[in-house]
């Protein structure tokens, strides 16, 4: 029980995630990816509203790695591109992104339940 509490507290301290970091981690939840792939994925997932400079993507990757949310991994079996470094989620990273999704869904539910502004 105590251990579970510690674990939850460890996850909670990362929340809420910044929108672009959420999109990065969501992409990595599907499959390992390299920096440039993540850059394009953010743009695609946000419908073109969120863009990141590749340099910022890599700096964010370094930070997420330091925080223990992602880890470098060998390229997937079908990849032949040896120039790129690939990243995957760690267990903590997976739980953080799940918790963020849950948080956002809860918030969305509450927003949908609230009366519209101006409605009598």
């Amino acid at each position: 029980m105590h251990f579970a509490y510690m674990q939850n507290a460890q996850i909670e301290k990362f929340l809420p995630l910044k929108p672009r970091v959420s999109l990065m981690l969501l992409t990595l939840r599907d499959s390992p990816a390299h920096g440039y792939r993540l850059m394009h994925a953010i743009e695609e997932r946000s419908g073109g509203t969120a863009r990141m400079d590749p340099g910022l993507v890599y700096r964010t990757l370094v930070r997420l790695g330091t925080q223990g949310l992602i880890k470098e991994c060998p390229p997937p079996g079908d990849s032949t591109d040896r120039r790129r470094r690939y990243y995957r989620l760690t267990e903590v990273g997976r739980r953080v992104v799940d918790a963020e999704v849950e948080r956002q869904q809860l918030l969305l539910g509450q927003l949908q339940a609230a009366p519209e502004v101006g409605r009598q």
Partner: peptide
Amino acid sequence: CYPMAFRTRFGRELLSGFEDE
């Protein structure tokens, strides 16, 4: 402009990504 350590680690990757783009 990047610090040396960053360049060593990601310089080639950034450059090749840019070339592809």
